[in-house]
Amino acid sequence: MHHSYLDKYARGTTAIHGLDARVKVLFSFAFIILIASLRASGFEFYLACLTLIAVCLIAARIPTVYLLTRSIVVIPFAGFAAISYMLTRTGGTTYWHSGPFAITSEGLIDASHLLARSWLAVSCMIILVNTTPFDQILKAFRTFRLHSILIMLLSFFYRYLYLLWDESERMQRARNLRYFGGKPEKQFAMLGHLVSSLFLRTYERTERVQMSMLSRGWDGSAAHVKLKPFTLQNVLNLVIGFSLLIILWWISTW
């Protein structure tokens, strides 16, 4: 496997990694919901959120470069949306305008808030999946009464994700070795064949996996996952986490 894992720091040994998955999931989701639902707040709020993210990052020993490169995914959509948001806002000092579009001080501030919000949410999610193994996250979802079949499907997905990803990279490499560019329509034909053979290989693998599962007596029900009891320490951690969120909310009202 040459590609980097999506959650390659998930199995660390720091204090943050040691926290209960349910506490981390609840806290991060509440944090993201808080960021996403607060509008038009001062920059102190964003600074406080950034501090929180930075503290978690350092405590979990995740490299900052890793976080920055992974959080680039927000750029294509968020950048486009922030630019159109900036161009259509009015109010404040106008720096430039043409037709219905204008760059104003209000627009700049609001667009930067928009970008800051989505970046903070993405960073929080990156820290969550890089401090909690995915099976633990799924177990946490199970205790939150998420549909058991959905959990099973997600674990199947995660199990075969890297495998098929490797397969697709192998096929792509094989194509690049044997194929020296060409007209666009030729490229698309090639890609169509790649997708279809990837699907067929997946399908045939599914048939084999399913046969072997059924022959070992699988009846379609999920194996029961035993979770550690929710201790007083977890409750305490959760209370501390939510008090932090209340402080953040209080900062946003400044």
Binding site: L153, F156, F157, Y160, L161, T206, Q210, M213
Partner: peptide, 9 residues
């Protein structure tokens, strides 16, 4: 279940 999970992957 295996089919859906793997097709998603």
């Amino acid at each position: 279940i295996p089919l859906i999970g793997m097709t998603a992957a």
